[in-house]
């Protein structure tokens, strides 16, 4: 009995040194060497200033940018220190209220879009920091972005098409557009006049 506990203590100490310290520190060293940009957090810079992470969604409100999905992360949304979804059940009154509010807001923002917005643009993501929207959600906003930037709709639609990410090897995941990537491309190629 005592003997087993003694062994347990020694194995615990040794395995913490190996699996709890050497392993994560070793992986960090290799990761920094081989994939330094990803290991650091996939930060994107514009004119030398960090504007966010390529894998993390951010908050958008201005009409000349594409907007992401509703977010339950933090008070204002898109807070990576408070990730999560609404956890509203399918028959929840709160779900109905928040979806209605999102539909009204999205339609008010996009008066030229016509028709109802796509599902992902009015439902809350699981993480609250979803970096993507569906291609349909991007096209839904194209007319607003074009009008705010005073550029032809065709140009904006062509840009969405160019930045659409497809399913990996045709079967993994869903088609999508990374909102930050698309907006940075807008700023780079189609500055507002």
């Amino acid at each position: 009995m005592i003997r087993q506990f003694g062994t347990a203590v020694r194995i615990t100490i040794l395995s913490i040194a190996l699996l709890g310290f050497a392993y994560p520190l070793g992986i960090t060293a290799i990761a920094r060497l081989v994939f330094p940009w990803q290991a650091d957090g996939s930060y994107l810079k514009v004119k030398g200033r960090v504007v966010g992470s390529a894998i993390i969604g951010q908050r958008w409100t201005q009409p000349q940018y594409f907007h992401g999905r509703p977010s339950a992360a933090g008070k204002e949304g898109y807070d990576p220190t408070a990730t999560g979804g609404t956890n509203y059940g399918p028959a929840s009154k709160n779900l109905v209220a928040s979806t209605k509010a999102a539909i009204a807001a999205v339609r008010a923002e996009n008066p030229r879009a016509g028709g109802m917005p796509p599902m992902d643009l009015v439902t809350t993501s699981g993480s609250g920091i979803d970096p993507d929207i569906s291609p349909a959600a991007a096209y839904y906003q194209a007319a607003r972005v074009a009008a705010a930037r005073k550029i032809p709709l065709g140009t904006v639609r062509a840009l969405i098409f160019a930045y659409e990410r497809h399913r990996t090897i045709g079967i993994l995941g869903e088609p999508r557009v990374n909102v930050l990537e698309l907006n940075l491309a807008l700023d780079r190629t189609l500055s507002p006049r």
Partner: peptide, 11 residues
């Protein structure tokens, strides 16, 4: 970080 639209975001 300061996002593209100027909001504060802690990553």
């Amino acid at each position: 970080v300061r996002t593209v639209e100027g909001y504060r975001q802690t990553i």
